[in-house]
Design a protein around this nucleic acid. Sequence first.
DNA 1: CGAGACGTTGAACCTATTCAACACTGGTGG
DNA 2: CCACCAGTGTTGAATAGGTTCAACGTCTCG
Lengths: 250, 250
Amino acid sequence: MSPRRKSPVQTVTTEPHFCSIDLRLKILGRLPFFDGVTGAALEEINKLFVEVGCQPGEVLYHAGDPAARLYVVAEGKIKLMQHTADGRSVLLDLLASGDFFGPLALSGPAVYAETAQAQTAGCMLRIALDDFRALLAEHPELALKALAVMAERLAASHQRVLQLSAMPVEQRIAFTLLRLAEKLGREQDGGILIDTPLSRDDLADMTGTTPETVSRVISRLQAGGAVTSGRQWLAVTDRTKLRQIAENSA
Amino acid sequence: MSPRRKSPVQTVTTEPHFCSIDLRLKILGRLPFFDGVTGAALEEINKLFVEVGCQPGEVLYHAGDPAARLYVVAEGKIKLMQHTADGRSVLLDLLASGDFFGPLALSGPAVYAETAQAQTAGCMLRIALDDFRALLAEHPELALKALAVMAERLAASHQRVLQLSAMPVEQRIAFTLLRLAEKLGREQDGGILIDTPLSRDDLADMTGTTPETVSRVISRLQAGGAVTSGRQWLAVTDRTKLRQIAENSA
DNA sequence: CGAGACGTTGAACCTATTCAACACTGGTGG
DNA sequence: CCACCAGTGTTGAATAGGTTCAACGTCTCG
């Protein structure tokens, strides 16, 4: 019952970001792509990656830019976004350590389909598209892994289309919070903290609504005891209640 | 100015549907998957497929069913749908001759993610998941083709999320009609006929709205001369005007 | 300490939904 | 062959859910 006043979200603040060799190998080894690759080959692969630091708010690339590289998140959170002509925006995905982004298709027009923006400071591992193509040629089973990743994302996107088409705002927000808690959740005295600086605008862009509406809904959820929230942070305190709201089809 | 009274959409009516060998090879040869495969190998692949006829409205599989097969549309139109607990539905995709559907992921849980329902009578080519897996092992480059297909569909789904999140109904419908005209369009005295029996309900499920609203919007479009429409059919008569409506961000 | 970003809340407005009545079409069976 | 009926489409009126605009409070950072 003691409302936390400051954000419990850990924001890394060490300057010019870079990753230790250990972290790099750990990240790469954990990728679905390379989980069957042995240590020596992995180090070979590691050499193909370049590390890039980034600052909060920094845009790694814009939708429509010529696409020549793929990225892996080593540290930090990345927002994948799209924008309309009149300035509205959608947050397509929120990526954390180990997530892959960029033109996974490999064929097709070599432009980025979305804008990638850093939500926190962090470090990315970058690989040239050609190098990745070569890697795929060498290890054909990697394509199957990529296929699995794409299928998962397609299913997620379809799920979102369903929600936007057929559910009221409150349910969409509840679902989104559950998903975020699952993906970015960290245990925090009795609740699951969504471990990224998350604004009302971000949530609005994730659920197809406005920041004002998000604020109202979250106030309601907070009054009902389902979540606790403050400036740029949110924790799920009653998962069951939240799920109930998400699935309430009455 | 003479409003067509009967649907110009050609509906195949020959009973128990099946495909000629010629058609089968033609369809398979045209698939992005097999476009590099030579005649002899193609006939080998052809043997793995079984043909299945289907009637309008028939459900090939339900979302959640154990998934053991992949399908290729030889003839006819297939609706891929999802449903909510309270009976609302979304039409995720409308597939025509040459389109692939089923669990393209190959890994992951072996259940169908959507429901596949025939919109017209038609014929499908079916392959066992295991056979397809074997095919992929034999021809690793096929995985890249599959990857490209998935990427395309993911981009389409993202586009739809953007539209549902940030555009009013009229724009969404206009966009949808343009896309349908592009995919299923057939030239028809001065207009582009969308060559499938398309109900207001279908359009509502494609644009995240209600059949009533679709009806109103289409009436407006028709009054403006952008489209002509009747029972279960629609033709785009002024592409430019429709595109203008679709992109109007004012 | 001030400025700007973030968040909340209220009130008016508007778009699209819902409910309802009716019209048209096409197919079926008497 | 016609009458009927279910499926489809149209239109109107009332309503609701969410947006928009605006004002204000609060936190953070330089």
